[in-house]
Design a protein around this nucleic acid. Structure first.
Lengths: 208, 208
DNA sequence: TGCTATGTTTTCTTTTTGTTCTCTTTTTTG
DNA sequence: CAAAAAAGAGAACAAAAAGAAAACATAGCA
C-alpha cells in the first residue's frame, strides 16, 4: 500500500472523525476552512494521496465533486448508529498499519466513551502482563494528552506507534511495556505524540 | 438513486427541518423568501432534482402546487438488533449470580457466534494468566459439551459455577485455573455440567 | 373580462467547483 | 549544514452549479 505522510494522516483523521458533521460531501473550500488552510490546491494534493492510498474515494455522483470516506457510501441520509471505525493494526515499533477499507465494529457502550473513539488490533506481546494479548482489539479514545498510568497510543518520532503505559515527567517521557522481557523506553517530550488513550479491550476465542 | 448536489441537499435539509412551520405546502415564492432567493426558476430546478431523487414528492392535493416530503425522507431507521443478554456474575466456587433484571449488551460480531450466546461478568482472579481479569465480561456460547483446552463455564455438583480450562478424560474431568496460586480440581464426569464455552471477552478501562 | 398568483421554461450572468500550475516556506533526512 | 521531501499559498482555467430575470401557461377570483 502507498505510504501516507504525516499531514495526510491528519487530514484523514479529521475526515474520519467528522464525517457526521457534514450534511453532504464537503467541498475543498469547505475543508480548507475546517483545517485552517487557505489553498484548495494544497489540500487537493492530500486528498488525491488519500484516494491513491485507498482510504478515501471520490464522490462520483456528479462530475464535480466532493469526497467521502471509503465504505461509507450512502450514509448521508440514514442516521447510522454505525460502530466505531476499525482503523488498523498497531505493533510496537512500527507505524499504525492502516486498513485499505475502513471497517466498523459494533462496540458495547461500556467499552467506549462519549468522545471520538476508534479500534485498533494489537500485534505483539508488549502488554501481555496487562492482559492485552496478540490479536486483541483495543478501543482508543482520541486524545492528545493523557495522565500518568494510563495506557496510550503514542507516536514516536513521527515514525512508529506503540501501545504502552505512560509516565511523563518534565524532561522525559517513559513508555513502559507490560512485559518483563522488554525494557522501558525514555524519550524527550518533543519526540512523543499521544494519539489516544485505551478505554476498552476485546478478544475473540473463535477459531477464524 | 440520483445523486444530489450540495445546494440541493441544503434545500432538502431546510424542508426536512422546517416542514412543521408550514401551515400548508409552501409555494415556490414562499420558499424563495425563506431561503433568501429571488428567483422561483432557480429554486424550481432544485425542487425538481429532489423529486427525481425521490426525496420529495409533489403535493397532489390541489391542482397547483406545493411540496411534501416522501415517507422515506425523515426516516429514522431504528434497527432493534438487541444485544446479547447479560446474565450475571460468575465467580469461581459460587453459583452464577443472576441479575434481577436481565440487561442487554451490544457485542461485536467478532466476539460471538451464530449460536445462542450470553454475557457474564467475571469475579476473581482464577483466570488471570489467561488474560481474564476481575471485572471483565465474557461472551459465552451456550453449549453442553466442549473440547479439551477450551475455556468453559462449568456447573459443579449442581451448586457452583466456574470459568476454567477444560481437560476431560474417560474417568475424570479436570478444571484448570490459569493462576499459579490455585490448584487444578478433578471431578467425576457426572459431577460436571458444561454450560457454555468462552468465545469472547471484553474489558473497560473507563473509571466508572 | 381583467387581475393575480401559481408552476414552468428559457436565456442569460455570476459564483463555485475541481484541477493544474508555479512559487515559497517548512519539515524531514542524510 | 545541505539536499530532498513535504506542505502551503496563490493564481489561472474550464466546467458545473446556482442564481436572476423575463416570458409563458393555467387556475382561481372579483
Amino acid at each position: 500500500m502507498k505510504v501516507i505522510t504525516r499531514r495526510q494522516q491528519q487530514v484523514f483523521n479529521y475526515l474520519r472523525d467528522n464525517t457526521d458533521s457534514f450534511s453532504c460531501p464537503p467541498s475543498l473550500a469547505e475543508l480548507c476552512v475546517r483545517l485552517g488552510m487557505t489553498s484548495r490546491g494544497s489540500l487537493y494534493k492530500h486528498i488525491m494521496a488519500l484516494i491513491e492510498a485507498g482510504l478515501i474515494e471520490p464522490f462520483t455522483g456528479n462530475k464535480q465533486g466532493g469526497i467521502r470516506l471509503t465504505s461509507q457510501a450512502g450514509q448521508e441520509q440514514s442516521k447510522p448508529e454505525q460502530g466505531l471505525p476499525f482503523i488498523g493494526v498497531i505493533a510496537a515499533g512500527k507505524p499504525i498499519e492502516a486498513l485499505a477499507t475502513v471497517d466498523y465494529m459494533t462496540v458495547p457502550d461500556a467499552l467506549k466513551t462519549d468522545k471520538p473513539c476508534y479500534v485498533l488490533q494489537v500485534k505483539g506481546d508488549s502488554m501481555i502482563e496487562a492482559g492485552i494479548f496478540d490479536g486483541d482489539w483495543v478501543v482508543i479514545e482520541q486524545r492528545d494528552c493523557a495522565n500518568n498510568g494510563e495506557i496510550v497510543v503514542a507516536l514516536i518520532d513521527n515514525a512508529e506507534a506503540t501501545l504502552k503505559y505512560l509516565e511523563q515527567g518534565a524532561e522525559q517521557v517513559l513508555l513502559l511495556p507490560a512485559n518483563a522481557n522488554m525494557t522501558a523506553l525514555s524519550y524527550r517530550p518533543e519526540q512523543v505524540v499521544i494519539q489516544g488513550v485505551l478505554v476498552g479491550q476485546m478478544r475473540s476465542y473463535r477459531v477464524h
